[in-house]
Design a protein around this nucleic acid. Sequence first.
DNA 1: ATTGTTTTCCTAACAAATTAAGGCTAAATT
DNA 2: AATTTAGCCTTAATTTGTTAGGAAAACAAT
Lengths: 159, 159
Amino acid sequence: MTNLLDETDIKILNHLQEDGRAQRNTIADIVHLSVPSVSERMRKLEEKGLIINYNAILDAKKFHFDITAFIFVEVDGSERYSDFVERVTEHPEVMECHSITGDGSHILKVRTKNTESLEKFLSLIQTWEGVTRTRSNIVLSTFKETRKLPIENAEDIKK
Amino acid sequence: MTNLLDETDIKILNHLQEDGRAQRNTIADIVHLSVPSVSERMRKLEEKGLIINYNAILDAKKFHFDITAFIFVEVDGSERYSDFVERVTEHPEVMECHSITGDGSHILKVRTKNTESLEKFLSLIQTWEGVTRTRSNIVLSTFKETRKLPIENAEDIKK
DNA sequence: ATTGTTTTCCTAACAAATTAAGGCTAAATT
DNA sequence: AATTTAGCCTTAATTTGTTAGGAAAACAAT
């Protein structure tokens, strides 16, 4: 039982990372396989969980989401972490929530329409039990923002 | 000339944010329109640039991308910013690059397979002209990571 | 208020894409 | 060496998507 993806799988995945609605015949041309073979491979890549999902990416600016901020949060005592995470992830303006090394226990990436709603959010989380400190960096410009993984040939994958 | 999206557009966009390969007939059922009407709306939403693109999201863990780090970079002198940005965005391990307020001029989100390749990347950027300091926070766990915008009814959009 | 225009939607017909079925070949397994 | 399995193909059936044409509603202008 091999666990390696071949060149063809990598090409398919790379194409889908860039065009999530790509049609099977387009991909078939690229990888020089028939359409049913591409279908079958895509099905397996999804089944193995290599592809988590497909998303439409919207233009935040067009929807007036003008503020992106990284917020470092210091949550006091690891027994409070899970409460914090549970509450914070419910908020739709929180795009990301990670626990991290270094100063601050968590980093959030937040998107709001304006500074007022960011302030409101910051005020809110500061009222939460265990949140002792926050530090925010507001994004001035974004030069790159992707989730495309640089996967390569003969990639071995985890079960 | 109105610039508002109606309830139906919002539903379509929200569905596509969650399922970027959703079929038109599925969406048609949700919004109670015919398939050609949904097609036409999708076409317009794309044409207006509200939908930037569609992506397959891969499971980083399955591909052994075990390290995610946020790197604060202090680039000395704003005349060096553009060179820095140009160089850094070329690197496929750099998922995000933003200029920010506060200490450090830029924040990077980087994904690598291991600490060795992270270290290599850090060492590299520290050799670049103008890069005076970096500070890294390594991600221990990720609790939320999405690009889904919380768009609402009667959203007015920017041209 | 009425007329003309534009937008949005529908259905029906057509075209394209996807899936299913069946079979061949080569590689892997017994 | 025989058998199974995996991967691919072609063809056919099915499903999905597009085009065309026209009705109804919304909007604008008179």
